[in-house]
């Protein structure tokens, strides 16, 4: 669609544009700038037009990796994200297939039932999970944590994958059936390979969410060797006295960098997952 705008209209459009762009960009650019500053420079007064580092240094990153053990938290987060993304797909595929291909009454209601859980905050479920995990000795364990992560991402992933499977023509199923494939073989050999772009979307979406997940590890993990980045970074917030802003900024940049990279290179997949989720809510 090609619409034309008068010069006055364009001025108005770009005034809003600049305000919003500064609003969205400033915090991210600012934290990057702070992470590159020396201790002396942090004490220089900065305002909107001079907050960039004059003598950029990468030293802060080394310091927070050594002192706050950001490297350990990064590894923990990466492990959790990978386990979650794979586990949630394995759990979601069969149900999504049944929802897409199965013929049963009140399918819509079953979907709503699954999505209903999406509304419940991890805070609420963590109260009694804490209680039971302490009895099952699952507090402060990696597997206990990963299981809850998978559960949290399951409702939306099921919903998303159902939509992806729906878009695959049923002719493919029938052809596989004629070739003697069981339902399981059809899912494995026909549906899943065809659904790769959708699976990628779901995985990127889940990775970003799992990376940001804070409440569950913050509530259930007290052993700081198991902390993911989101919780470990609070250690950085509390562990430095005096001037610590540049270290805190460096730790923050380490924590948000993977997510920003995903956005820069795979924006399309993220948008697809978001809009797919919105269509039916």
């Amino acid at each position: 669609m090609d619409r034309h705008y008068s010069p006055t209209q364009k001025v108005f459009i770009y005034i809003f544009y600049v305000i919003l762009l500064v609003f969205f960009l400033l915090p991210v650019v600012y934290i990057f700038a702070m992470s590159l500053k020396t201790e002396a420079e942090v004490l220089d007064k900065v305002h909107l037009f001079n907050f960039y580092p004059k003598r950029p240094t990468l030293e802060n990153f080394g310091r927070v990796i050594k002192n706050v053990r950001m490297d350990m938290y990064l590894a923990n987060s990466a492990k959790l994200v990978i386990t979650t993304s794979i586990g949630v797909l394995l759990a979601a595929f069969p149900s999504a297939f049944a929802l897409s291909r199965g013929n049963f009454k009140r399918k819509e209601l079953v979907m709503m039932g699954v999505l209903f859980f999406q509304m419940i905050s991890p805070i609420i479920i963590s109260i009694s999970i804490y209680w039971y995990y302490s009895k099952l000795h699952l507090l402060n364990t990696y597997s206990g944590l990963a299981l809850i992560y998978i559960a949290i991402h399951l409702p939306f992933t099921t919903f998303l994958m159902k939509g992806v499977f729906d878009a695959i023509p049923r002719d493919l199923d029938e052809a596989a059936h004629i070739d003697g494939c069981s339902r399981f073989a059809t899912l494995l050999k026909v549906i899943i390979p065809t659904a790769v772009p959708g699976i990628a979307s779901a995985t990127i979406f889940n990775s970003i969410n799992a990376w940001s997940q804070f409440i569950i590890p913050f509530f259930l993990i007290s052993d700081n060797k198991l902390y993911p980045v989101s919780v470990g970074i609070l250690q950085a917030q509390g562990s430095y006295q005096d001037v610590s802003t540049h270290y805190l900024a460096a730790a923050s940049v380490i924590g948000l960098f993977p997510a920003v990279l995903l956005v820069l290179f795979l924006q399309k997949f993220i948008i697809r997952a978001l809009t797919a989720g919105a269509v039916k809510g």
Binding site: P27, W211, S212, F214, I233, S252, G255, V260, Q267, I270
Partner: peptide, 11 residues
């Protein structure tokens, strides 16, 4: 706008 959205809440 999307970058702001993916920044973990704590950060």
């Amino acid at each position: 706008m999307i970058t702001a959205w993916v920044v973990p809440g704590v950060i």
